[in-house]
Write a protein that binds this DNA or RNA. Structure first.
Length: 599
RNA sequence: GGCCUGGUAGCUCAGUUGGUUAGAGCGCCGCCCUGUCACGGCGGAGGUCGUGGGUUCAAGUCCCAUCCAGGUCGCCA
C-alpha cells in the first residue's frame, strides 16, 4: 500500500504519528512561506502543511508548483492544530506537517471546479463524468446506492431467496416497451431483444422449483427518457411460489423497512397503508397518490344536476362526473395570476377549463363566493356544496366536470401542483408509503379499439371475476399491487396466472387467438402445463428508490454513467456509426444517411 | 412527434426601449505574502453572444429556420 491512512482517518489520537496519505489536491493556500494543501480522497479531506523549516527547500519548491487536482503522496507528522481547529472538517483537529512529498501525477485544469460551493450544470458534468464523480454529492449518492444494494441482498438471503441471473439477450415478445434489438451474426436476419425485464424467466424459475428468486437485474427499454427513466436501469426483481398477494406485499414491505432502517436510520411503520386502485383514483386522481398532504378529491356527481350550473349538469348528462378539491385557507396564497396558470395547466391535462371558487370572509354570503363558477350555482346548491366540502373562510375550490378519466387526470394534476409547489405541503423526508392494489386487469385502448393488459397478460384476475372476462372485461380486477412512495411508483407486481386454462381465457379477452398465443408465448404456456406452482412477485426500481432516498432530482444523479435525454453518452460519444464491414457481418443494411456511417 | 424553458468567457450568470470598445463572481496565468482553511493583495489573459439567414444606418437584443440541453405530454404491458 502506498498510504498508511485515508484523508478521512486522522484524529487527535494520531498526534505525533508519522503517516503517509495519498489523494487529490482540493485546494492550495500559499502564504509565501507556509503553504497549506487540502488533500482529498473519497473518505475526506486533510490539511497538509508545508513549513519551509520542516519540509525542506526541495519539497517547498515543489509545493509551489502544485495545482488543483494533482495527485500527491505525502509523508509527515500528525500535529494538533491547537486553537486553530477547523470545526467544519472531520479531520479538523489535526494537520499533517509534510516531511516527504511525491507528486504522483499532474492534472490539466479541470473544466469545472470540484467543489460543492460551485454550481455546475449537467452537460459539462456528464461530458467529464470522471471529474463529476470526484464531487461529494455524487460520491454520497453512489455510496448510498451501494448500501441499499447490500441491505437488499442481505435481506433476501436471510429470507431464503436465491439470486439467479437471467439472460439479457432474449426473445422479442410483443406488447409493452419497445425493445433494443441485437442482430444475430449466426442467424442472418434474426434479432435478439434486450430484456425489458426478467418477467418470463422468473416465472420459468418458479416452474423449475426455485420458489424464492431474487435478482438485481439490468433492464433495457427503448422509450423516450425522463428524469426518472434511462434506457438501461436496474430492478430489484423477486418472485415467490406458494404465496398470495399479502405474502409478496409483506416481503416487499420488509425490504423497504430494512433499507430505511439501515441506510437512513429511519423506522417505517410496521404495516404500510393499503388502498385499492379505485379508491386512489377517486380520492387522489392517481394510481400513485402522494399522501404527504390531504387535498382529497370529493365526488359531487349526484349533486351536480341540482347545481344550476349547465357545465356541471351537461357533464353528468354525458355520463361524466363532477368532482372537487377544497384547498383549505389557500385564498391568500393563490393569486388570480396563479389561478390562471393553474387553469392553463388543467387545459394541458385535457380539461376544457378549470372552474374555481374563492371563498371570502363569510361563506354564508353569496358575494363571498368569487370565481368563474360561483354565480351560476343556485343558493340551495351552494349551501349543500358548502356542507359537502366543509367550506370555510379563505378556502379555494377547484372543480372537474368531464369524463371520469379526464377528471381524475386533471384534479390529480391540480392536487399535486397545489400540494407540492403552490402550497408547499410536502417535505422531502416525509416518507409516506402505501400500496395501491387490485387495479383493473384490462384498460380500454382507444388507439387499438380493444382491451389491453393493464399490467401484463400473465396477471391473475380475482377468481370471482373470471366469468366477467367474457361479459364485462373492463370490470375485472387483478391481483396486482404497486408500492408507492410520496407519489412515485417505486415497485409493482402481481400474482401470476399458473394454469393454462385461465391463461387462455385472458388471451381470448385480449383478442389474442390460440395460434397467436402459441407463437408469441408458446414456451410459457408449455411450461405452465408441466405443474406450475401458484406464484407471484414484484420488482422495485432501484434507481428511483435511491433517487428518493438521496433526495436527488434525477436518476442520472444516482447512476455512475447515465445517458442524456436523447440516449447519448457524450463522454463516450455513443452511440456511433459502425463500419460497412461490421454491418455486413451482421447482414444489416442501414437506411440512415451515408454521413452517419463510419469508414 | 407536440408543448414549455434555456443556450453570452473554462464554470455560474447579468446584459435596459436595438445604439460607444459585451460585463461580474469563481476558475486560470504572473508577482507579493509564514497560520490559512471557499486565505488575502496587486496585475493579466480569456468571447464568432449555439449555428444559418433576414429586418435595420446599427442586432447579444427583433423576425424566420435549424442544432443542442433540460422539463413535460404522447410513449414506458
Amino acid at each position: 500500500m502506498m498510504r498508511t491512512h485515508t484523508c478521512g482517518d486522522l484524529r487527535a489520537a494520531h498526534i505525533d504519528q508519522t503517516v503517509t496519505l495519498c489523494g487529490w489536491v482540493q485546494n492550495r493556500r500559499d502564504h509565501g512561506g507556509i503553504i497549506f494543501i487540502d488533500l482529498r480522497d473519497r473518505y475526506g479531506l486533510t490539511q497538509v502543511t508545508f513549513d519551509p523549516d520542516l519540509c525542506g527547500a526541495a519539497a517547498h519548491e515543489q509545493a509551489n508548483r502544485i495545482r488543483s487536482e494533482w495527485v500527491l503522496k505525502v509523508t509527515g507528522t500528525v500535529k494538533s492544530r491547537g486553537d486553530r481547529k477547523n470545526p467544519n472538517l472531520a479531520t479538523g483537529e489535526i494537520e499533517l506537517f509534510v516531511t516527504g512529498l511525491e507528486i504522483l501525477n499532474q492534472a490539466a485544469t479541470p473544466p469545472f471546479e470540484i467543489d460543492d460551493h460551485v454550481k455546475v450544470s449537467e452537460e459539462p458534468r456528464l461530458k467529464s463524468r470522471f471529474l463529476d464523480l470526484r464531487r461529494a454529492p455524487m460520491q454520497r449518492n453512489l455510496i448510498t446506492r451501494h448500501q441499499v444494494m447490500q441491505v437488499v441482498r442481505r435481506y433476501f438471503d436471510a429470507n431464503q431467496f436465491l439470486e439467479v441471473e437471467t439472460p439479457t439477450l432474449c426473445k422479442y415478445t410483443p406488447g409493452g416497451a419497445r425493445n433494443f434489438l441485437v442482430p444475430s451474426r449466426m442467424q442472418p436476419g434474426s434479432f435478439y431483444a434486450m430484456a425489458e425485464s426478467p418477467q418470463l424467466f422468473k416465472q420459468l424459475l418458479m416452474v423449475g422449483g426455485y420458489d424464492r428468486y431474487i435478482q438485481i437485474a439490468r433492464c433495457y427499454r427503448d422509450e423516450d427518457l425522463r428524469n426518472d427513466r434511462q434506457p438501461e436501469f436496474t430492478q430489484i426483481d423477486l418472485e415467490m411460489s406458494f404465496i398470495d398477494m399479502d405474502d409478496i406485499m409483506d416481503m416487499g414491505e420488509g425490504m423497504a423497512r430494512q433499507v430505511w432502517r439501515e441506510v437512513l436510520g429511519f423506522e417505517l411503520p410496521a404495516k404500510f397503508r393499503r388502498m385499492t386502485w379505485t379508491e386512489g383514483m377517486l380520492k387522489y386522481g392517481s394510481d400513485k397518490p402522494d399522501l404527504r398532504f390531504g387535498l382529497e378529491i370529493v365526488d359531487l356527481t349526484d349533486w351536480a344536476p341540482t347545481s344550476g350550473f349547465s357545465v356541471f349538469q351537461s357533464a353528468v348528462a354525458n355520463k361524466g362526473v363532477v368532482r372537487a378539491i377544497n384547498a383549505k385557507g389557500a385564498s391568500e396564497q393563490l393569486s388570480r395570476r396563479t389561478l390562471d396558470a393553474l387553469t392553463e395547466q388543467a387545459k394541458g391535462l385535457g380539461a376544457k377549463g378549470l372552474a374555481w371558487i374563492k371563498i371570502g370572509a363569510d361563506p354564508a354570503k353569496a358575494e363571498d363566493w368569487q370565481g368563474p363558477a360561483a354565480k351560476n350555482i343556485t343558493p340551495e346548491a351552494r349551501a349543500e356544496l358548502g356542507r359537502r366540502l366543509g367550506v370555510g373562510p379563505g378556502d379555494v375550490l377547484f372543480f372537474g366536470a368531464d369524463r371520469e378519466k379526464t377528471v381524475c387526470t386533471v384534479l390529480g394534476g391540480i392536487r399535486l401542483e397545489l400540494g407540492r409547489n403552490l402550497l408547499k405541503l410536502a417535505r422531502q423526508d416525509d416518507w409516506q408509503f402505501l400500496w395501491i392494489h387490485s387495479a383493473p386487469l384490462f384498460e380500454w385502448s382507444e388507439e387499438a379499439n380493444a382491451f389491453v393488459a393493464n399490467h401484463h397478460p400473465f396477471t391473475c384476475p380475482y377468481p370471482e371475476h373470471l366469468d366477467a372476462l367474457t361479459t364485462d372485461p373492463g370490470s375485472v380486477l387483478s391481483k396486482s399491487y404497486d408500492m408507492v412512495l410520496n407519489g412515485n411508483e417505486i415497485g409493482g407486481g402481481s400474482i401470476r396466472i399458473h394454469d393454462a386454462a385461465t391463461q387462455s381465457k385472458v388471451f381470448a379477452a385480449l383478442g389474442i387467438s390460440p395460434e397467436d398465443a402459441q407463437r408469441k408465448f408458446g414456451f410459457l404456456l408449455h411450461a405452465l402445463s408441466f405443474g406450475a406452482p401458484p406464484h407471484g412477485g414484484m420488482a422495485f426500481g432501484l434507481d428511483r428508490l435511491v433517487m428518493l432516498i438521496t433526495g436527488a432530482e434525477s436518476i442520472r444523479d444516482v447512476i455512475a454513467f447515465p445517458k442524456n435525454q436523447r440516449g447519448r453518452d457524450e463522454m463516450l460519444d455513443c452511440p456511433t456509426p459502425v463500419s460497412d464491414r461490421q454491418l455486413k457481418d451482421l447482414h444489416i443494411v442501414t437506411a440512415a444517411p451515408a454521413a452517419a456511417t463510419a469508414p
